[in-house]
Design a protein around this nucleic acid. Structure first.
Lengths: 232, 232, 232, 232
DNA sequence: GATGAATGAGCTTTCATTCAT
DNA sequence: GATGAATGAAAGCTCATTCAT
């Protein structure tokens, strides 16, 4: 028996009160699903558990989502489309180029240790084989967007003659990679990482210095940036 | 989760024939487990499937491993202890510093796209919450060892006055991070990556140049390395 | 299981507009139920599916019928009372006795392969244990009526001296059984049957000949009917 | 996960004790399944109920049969292949042709009211759409076989000049149909039928007389069989 | 030591029915 | 009167684990 007749369609902005209630219930279910999927992963989560956590019956779950896989996809897509963008905020213009990049690097390092980002990474890596579309979605709304914004910003400074960047997209990707130094890989595996303010600042600044030593247009009057030791 | 409790220990040279057979059967089981866990993950693998793939009965599985969790741990530990080291081979000494690092960077980029490494990463990230010890083991035998070797090597060149590295461990970690540019994150999510020889070489050389521009002791007679565009 | 309890009764001529609408909706629901029950049987049909097919909400279903069982009974009774009689049309008087019986036999053979009759048979046989009343109803409006009409007709010819029928009801039942030769049992089981015009005619004629050889008053001047081979 | 590794293969005659136990368990399950399917039909039966009735766990059910459908098929096939033949016993040779046919007709009428035959009929008609193969199997081992034996027997008497049967198979089918007079259709629908010895004998004898009046080679010295009234 | 049949809790999913709107 | 969201019992099926042989 096809259940599509029993389920609410995607709510539109102009939908009436009933549809608003529908959308609210949908959100309520997604919230419960988020908690359970985040904690137990896809296979480890049970629809019973999600129903309990969301405060609805199992039947209601299936009124809103065709299957566990559908619910999972909806959860990941929502995170990717609605919550990820909040993490990739605009590049804060600092007093100068170095400061701006420093701000950005700190934000990125923080991102790589944020629970939401880590959870999404973990879940998408776990289920990449079974839900290839989710990895695409996540990548497009997350890393891809960040790299695009950064590469555009780098190109501006390249054109302004401050930086010398033959391949801005790749440079952005290097910057993205440098910001993962020391903590990202360990955080993904839930190994302890030092998230002290000082340590994060050090990692971010080190990323910026390494990056700028490679891409700053050489100016005979300026010495290269000096690398530092990590704080104790 | 301890796998050493009441199971046949690793055979010693003086062990009798029976123990030898025991060790062989253990290896046989692990081989089957490896195939099944690698393909289906922890939750997706069934003990029946492993028994079938290993060519033993389910009862025998439980004679050698207390539980699915124990078998899984043993499988991951074996990969980490026996197979990972083969991937992190010695730094090939090249004609000079740059060449040596180039070789190493290429090896690392290749590592990050090797099926074994990706599978282990995926499996450990998936089950990090349920098997924290595995992440530790993996880290110790994989990335940690690589970083240690590299940092020692960097320190040598620092002491020799070629490089100027205030924090060799962190520098090694930056090198490690730089080698992940563009492909590692995507490969982990099973998104398509370009593994052409030319592209891998480009990523590796770019990592080395960015790295050396930051850490090469400044020599007024030498210009900094010039960054390049990616090949088409 | 009684469907007449607290539901809108059959509308009378003097009923108001609302009751007319009520009866129409009831018919609309029954039409949907007919399609779904006919296709999926009792257990296989879902109230959601019936509601969808009938174009009403599930709630409305329950406003008109107390339960799935009630709706099913109403559907079967409607078929039996309204549609079956159409199948058991009057005996077409032919030019003579043999021709009349031939016409009737062909009609009966056709009946036993008609989709509606087969569906009703199948459904009633399936649910006979759970809905004993339905079998009674069906029998009364279907086979029983046919046998009654036929036995009355036979009795006329008996009294007219053409036939010699000591037990007209039983004779009618034999005729009814003879018309089922070869195809009825197979059609009930959805096994392939030959419904070619020629084949049906052969079965019908054979039934009539066998019947008349047994019940025709012996007339020394007339030879018995000769049985034939089936057409290729 | 494929469960085929966990299930026992079809036991052979020469199988050892273990396989004997396996076959016994299989039979035990089939016995339970028979009771439950016979009572509730396919859809109405639950695997839990069958497990309970058979005295095994649900898991064991699935160790022996892949699915509910498989178990159902096995049950029907077993009935058709092993139990049906017992019902279609050989034609008891009577003192003469009429007596032989009388014996056979009585056996057939009894068959059409036997609980096993009725149950099989009911179940196969119910599930003919979903299990077309079962109807084929049933037909082949039941009616088909009976008709074959009977038609061969009729042909012998035809060749011996006693009967005059242009189409022995069709004649056998008419005999088969005649034996269903009055009771078969009603029994299939679980409507009350008169199974008194006298009544069954009457139906059987009437079938034989009607049949012989059509197919007995005309012998001017012999009058046709006289039809009778049913006993009160 | 090896086997694999047996277990039963637990899974995802369906659906008749209710009831607030 | 009509709606359809919500319910929750019950379905078919899986699988880690045990244990008699």
């Amino acid at each position: 028996m096809d259940t599509t007749a029993d389920r609410p369609r995607q709510v539109q902005a102009e939908d009436c009160v009933l549809s608003g209630a529908s959308a609210a219930k949908r959100a309520q279910i997604l919230a419960g699903a988020a908690r359970v999927f985040a904690e137990h992963g896809y296979e480890g989560a049970s629809m019973s558990g999600i129903a309990r956590d969301a405060g609805v019956s199992k039947g209601t779950l299936y009124n809103y989502f065709d299957s566990k896989a559908t619910l999972f996809s909806a959860f990941v897509e929502q995170c990717a489309c609605e919550k990820m963008p909040l993490l990739f905020s605009r590049i804060d213009e600092g007093a100068n180029l170095t400061e701006s990049l420093d701000h950005l690097a700190v934000a990125m390092v923080r991102l790589f240790t944020s629970p939401l980002s880590l959870m999404l990474n973990r879940i998408i890596i776990s289920e990449a084989g079974n839900f290839p579309a989710l990895a695409e979605t996540f990548w497009k709304h997350g890393p891809q967007k960040a790299i695009n914004i950064l590469s555009a910003w780098l190109m501006q400074h390249n054109d302004a003659g401050v930086l010398n960047i033959p391949d801005p997209v790749f440079a952005a990707e290097q910057f993205y990679a440098l910001c993962q130094t020391r903590i990202a890989a360990r955080a993904r595996m839930q190994l302890p990482v030092n998230t002290d303010e000082a340590h994060i600042t050090f990692i971010a600044r080190s990323a910026v210095r390494t990056f700028l030593n490679a891409y700053m247009r050489e100016d005979p009057r300026l010495p290269p940036f000096v690398m530092e030791r990590a704080p104790d």
